[in-house]
């Protein structure tokens, strides 16, 4: 009985821990853990995974693309594969990508034209 209870508490704690760490991941952490393999260490793209380059896009374009692939407005996603990837990341890993801050991170980290 006692053991069962402790196990329950432990399970609860680990659940909490997963939730908390997912919520606290910075965009840099999200990128290197969940985006890099398909989009390249410097956003240069990865043909092997069909991931397009992100480092040649203006911050406004990145924001528009991220909003579009999450179908935040009324128009359909133009990136159906990526929309699916994002859903999987949300569902399985508890990752929530914020289009505004992620666009900023991608642009200032990778685009050579960023000041």
């Amino acid at each position: 009985m006692q053991l069962k209870k402790i196990a329950g508490v432990l399970a609860g704690m680990s659940l909490l821990a997963v939730g908390a760490s997912a919520a606290e991941l910075s965009n840099a952490q999200i990128y290197s853990k969940y985006c890099k393999k398909c989009h390249g260490a410097n956003g240069e793209g990865n043909p092997a995974k069909k991931g397009p380059a992100l480092n040649d896009k203006d911050i406004n374009e990145l924001f528009d693309a991220l909003m579009n692939l999450k179908e935040k407005g009324f128009e359909a996603s133009k990136h159906e594969a990526m929309t699916h990837n994002m859903e999987v990341l949300e569902r399985k890993k508890g990752i929530h990508v914020d289009p505004q801050s992620m666009a900023k991170y991608l642009f200032y980290s990778f685009n050579p034209e960023a000041k």
């Binding site: 896009k57 203006d58 406004n60 374009e61 924001f63 528009d64 693309a65 579009n68 133009k78």
Partner: peptide, 21 residues
């Protein structure tokens, strides 16, 4: 207009300031 990207053909404006990029 935007020459490429998801918003191609619409005005190339900054999403916050509404100024042309």
């Amino acid at each position: 207009g935007w020459q490429k990207g998801t918003a191609k053909g619409w005005m190339a404006a900054d999403r916050y300031t509404l100024q042309h990029i």
